[in-house]
Write a protein that binds this DNA or RNA. Structure first.
Length: 672
DNA sequence: GGGTAGCCTATTTAGACAGCATGTC
DNA sequence: CTAAATAGGCTACCC
């Protein structure tokens, strides 16, 4: 099937031709046959990089009205927005927490790209443009099964369909075990395919050789006898070296940030022969910080070496922290590490430089697999387990498949290779059965979780979609949960949720057996904080009202917001505990919780640490200082500042409803 | 005294969505 | 309470 045979205006056909899209990939053709261009609901369960974006564009461009593209990450939203905005004659908008299109004129856009939470939030705040949508595309719809965020996605989609009953739904999913269940819920045609533009072979290493699923074997010449080195790391290094020496790029996945950095350092010492294509090389940078010829044990391509030096320079310019310095040092040798402790600038730089083939290797924690597109010739999954709060757990099959799916660069590699590293035959068998031959998990609704029911029940009532328990149940009838459960008796659970919300003074019973949101409940819903955070904030604000005004400082404001479930925890090391304790004691008058009254003392002490970091930040401390003294990454600081901004706003709005004066909230926020 | 190899113990451990208001030169 | 890697402290030993 050819693009010019599709019901598309000629300018779009030309646009796609200019991007090299003239012939449809098989899954794309299947989606067309399933009706994406005729307004039909379609669920496409296909591998990453098999052309899902084009399917989305077909639906959005052929729809008779404005479209919405929902995705799970802000970075992905940005990427898609830029792509859609390049379409001829299309006015695209973006709406995410960190980046909003100019003003609230989303109503006039042809295509709006947003995260699922942002859509949910827009609905809660009375956005009317959602009623006019002709088409909604949901990317990564398998996240329906994610504990915290899945319920938001299914309730939001149910609400969208209720408000715009004729809206076309196109859902794009990773390969999961039960895509037919998602299709059934959405009354959609299912398109299922494992087709990829580049072949992928997956293998498992054990005892010096990799066995691939196409029956081939490959020896890995490495000395694993040295007890001073981790054999899995040696194997990983050799696999990376091999791919790079062969002109490819590699991704290596490990379990923790520290190990990602350690592996990057190990590979930097390796002095990988540069593989970075001369075509992708630019000449800039004086190379002063880059490798000297005297250091090199291999010949390096001149252009590539200078290019790597340029990447290193860009990294240094983006931020002079200790982490940034080490990253730049590795980048000078074509190696990078990647995890959420990096500043967002550094992360984006690493991703982009790798895509532009100015870096040979990224050593990453599992996140990279779910983020923006970073294809490599070879993917090595050294660690398949991850610490999960209480002991080690196997990574979900879906996650490992997504890592492996990053192997194979279209137009560059004859095929992609993914290797899982095990030590011995027993390990190989385990990994083979668990990941190579196994299907990904089924997607199962998490709506029944009490916290999810509380959140969404409050939202439905606060927005006026429901005024009784029956109404709430009616709204939930359109969810994935209801579609999957033969007799979805949520009555008891929703009843419990309502009772607890009334207890918390967020909902109130009306005389006739109905329910309504209190002024507090309405504000909690609009501010998009969880009910539990709302309750914590309200309790803290009531305490603030009893404090002497001179004791209510910015530290107080930060402590109020840090001791809520919506603020991310900050690890409190043993060595710091005593010092933070001392700090809390000497600032006791400014804190809303007394040393003896916290029911979770450890948790509270952690929030005091976070509050202290933020206080020092607004008092002018630099990123470097804070990163150094509190042992957090620049990215961790960023995320806490971001959340603090949001939660201070929420606290301020709630203080106003309560009639509590707390100027420190606004002043702290202004300084962030 | 100073350095260090080697052992034992204590410490640490992935990630990331969200609010809201508009006039202004 | 489950686990694996490693940072760090300590001792024993050597020069």
């Amino acid at each position: 099937m050819r693009v010019d045979a599709l019901p598309l205006a000629s300018e779009f056909v030309e646009h796609f031709a200019a991007e090299g899209i003239e012939e449809l990939y098989p899954p794309q053709a299947a989606a067309v046959e399933a009706g994406v261009c005729e307004g039909g609901n379609v669920v496409a369960a296909v591998p990453t990089a098999s052309g899902k974006t084009f399917v989305a564009e077909l639906a959005l461009l052929t729809a008779d009205g404005p479209g919405l593209y929902v995705c799970p990450l802000r970075a992905l939203a940005r990427e898609k927005f830029e792509e859609f905005d390049r379409l001829p004659g299309v006015d695209a908008g973006i709406s995410t927490g960190d980046f909003d299109s100019a003003a609230a004129d989303l109503a006039g856009k042809d295509i709006v790209v947003a995260t699922s939470e942002k859509v949910d939030s827009a609905i809660r705040n009375g956005a009317e443009w959602v009623d006019d949508l002709a088409c909604v595309v949901v990317d990564e719809v398998h996240l329906l099964g994610a504990a915290g965020r899945g319920p938001t996605l299914e309730v939001t989609l149910a609400t969208l369909r209720r408000r715009a009953p004729d809206v076309q739904i196109v859902a794009l999913s990773a390969t999961v075990d039960n895509p037919e269940d998602i299709a059934e819920w959405l009354d959609a045609e299912l398109v299922e395919s494992t087709w990829r533009p580049v072949d992928l072979r997956v293998g498992v290493h054990a005892d010096g050789s990799v066995r691939f699923d196409d029956g081939t074997d490959a020896a890995v010449p490495v000395d694993t006898a040295d007890p001073a080195t981790n054999p899995d790391t040696e194997v990983t290094a050799e696999l990376v070296r091999g791919a790079v020496a062969d002109g490819g790029q590699a991704l290596a996945f490990v379990r923790s940030r520290r190990e990602a950095e350690a592996l990057a350092e190990r590979l930097t010492d390796e002095r990988l022969p540069s593989v970075v294509d001369a075509a992708g090389a630019s000449d800039s940078g004086d190379g002063a910080d880059g490798p000297d010829a005297a250091d090199a044990t291999h010949e390096r391509g001149e252009d590539a070496g200078m290019d790597a030096a340029a990447v290193a320079e860009e990294i240094r310019e983006a931020g002079g922290t200790e982490t940034g310095d080490r990253l730049a040092e590795a980048a000078a040798w074509g190696v990078a590490f990647h995890h959420a402790g990096l500043s967002s600038d550094h992360r984006a730089l690493v991703e982009r430089a790798f895509r532009e083939r100015r870096l040979s290797v990224i050593c990453a924690t599992p996140t990279l697999a779910a983020g923006v597109n970073v294809p490599a010739r070879r993917v090595v999954v050294r660690d398949q387990q991850r610490y999960a709060g209480s002991g080690y757990e196997w990574l979900p099959v879906l996650e490992v498949h997504q890592m492996c799916g990053r192997a194979g660069r279209p137009h560059l590699d004859p095929y992609g290779e993914a290797v899982l590293v095990a030590g011995d035959e027993a390990g190989r068998t385990e990994l083979w059965d668990r990941y190579v031959t196994a299907d990904a998990e089924a997607v199962e609704s998490k709506l029944r979780d009490p916290a999810a029911l509380r959140t969404h029940t409050l939202a439905l009532v606060a927005t006026g979609f429901a005024a009784s328990q029956a109404d709430v149940l009616d709204a939930f009838a359109g969810t994935f949960y209801a579609s999957r459960t033969p007799n979805p008796d949520l009555g008891g659970d929703v009843g419990d949720a309502i009772a607890s919300l009334i207890d918390d003074d967020l909902l109130a019973a009306t005389g006739d057996g109905g329910i309504e949101a209190t002024a507090l409940g309405e504000q909690v819903s609009r501010q998009y904080v969880t009910p539990d955070t709302g309750v914590e904030l309200l309790a803290a604000l009531r305490t603030v009202a009893t404090m002497a005004p001179e004791h209510v400082t910015e530290l107080t404001a930060f402590e109020v917001i840090c001791d809520t479930p919506d603020m991310v925890d900050t690890y409190l090391g043993n060595a710091e505990r005593a010092e933070i304790y001392q700090f809390a004691r000497s600032h006791a008058a400014e804190l809303t919780t007394g040393m003896t009254e916290a029911d979770d003392f450890e948790g509270w002490l952690e929030s005091v640490k976070t509050a202290r970091i933020l206080t020092e930040w607004v008092d002018g401390a630099s990123v470097e200082e804070l990163v150094e003294s509190y042992r957090i990454g620049p990215g961790d600081l960023e995320s806490r500042i971001e959340r603090a901004e949001w939660l201070l706003g929420a606290a301020d709005a709630l203080a106003e409803v309560l009639g509590v004066e707390m100027p420190a909230l606004a002043s702290a926020r202004a300084k962030l």
